[in-house]
Design a protein around this nucleic acid. Sequence first.
DNA 1: CGTGTAATAT
DNA 2: GATATTACAC
Length: 257
Amino acid sequence: MREDEANWFSKWEQQLPKPEDLIPLNQTLITPDLAIAFDIGTSHNPINHNRFQQQQPPSISTPSSQTEFDSSDLNTDEPARTLKRPRLVWTPQLHKRFVDAVAHLGIKNAVPKTIMQLMSVDGLTRENVASHLQKYRLYLKRMQGLSSGTGTFGSGGDPATDHLFASSPVPPHFLHQSVHGADNFLPYMPVSALQQQHHHQQMANHLHRQFAPVGLSRQTNQSVPITPVRGGGGSYVDDLDSGNEKKALTLFPIGDD
DNA sequence: CGTGTAATAT
DNA sequence: GATATTACAC
């Protein structure tokens, strides 16, 4: 029975990701060993195409001393507003958050603004979500249309958009259904204590912010030499942290089988 | 003003 | 090739 829809929502709302509790979307991915284990960085593969993405300097500190430099250097102004942010890289993890948000919002409320707010990912803009949502919807549509008996996918053909999306479990309700009068989703129990059991790696400070001025790495501060590595040439690896096929870390009971 | 979608640009 | 951006409809 559906409990008060408002009820689960409220409960879930309480556990909304607070800045302090935010999931470390900025996982450091792949340890050196892991990298070798795969193939990236081994052999002849200049291990460095990865210097993009995230990290936001503690913008909070005496905010007075940074106003003008010489006109020689383009000021990498702090992400105040209306600045060209670097291209958003939709990592599987980020996409997962996206899917999670959409799943819990229900198709009805799954609009860019709401999704963006519930993802609580700093730096994410409405257009970011809108753009991604557009593609994601097309992806879902495509899948629904092609529910042919091909148990094993691989045929169908156009893995243009699918790659990223395939890395994330797609809640069953995402299919096209006409809404039933009001709202209908399942009273899922969201887990809030989303903590990853990581080893004490080089996890500098726990920053929850996303991307930084990527293209122009010119920060006046002494950034830690840690470069959040990411699946380089080999694309993204599935959530290795989650085990691989264990629904241990997954947010909610999605991929139920 | 916010959204959905297609086309187009970077 | 993946995202962003634009244009237009609603």
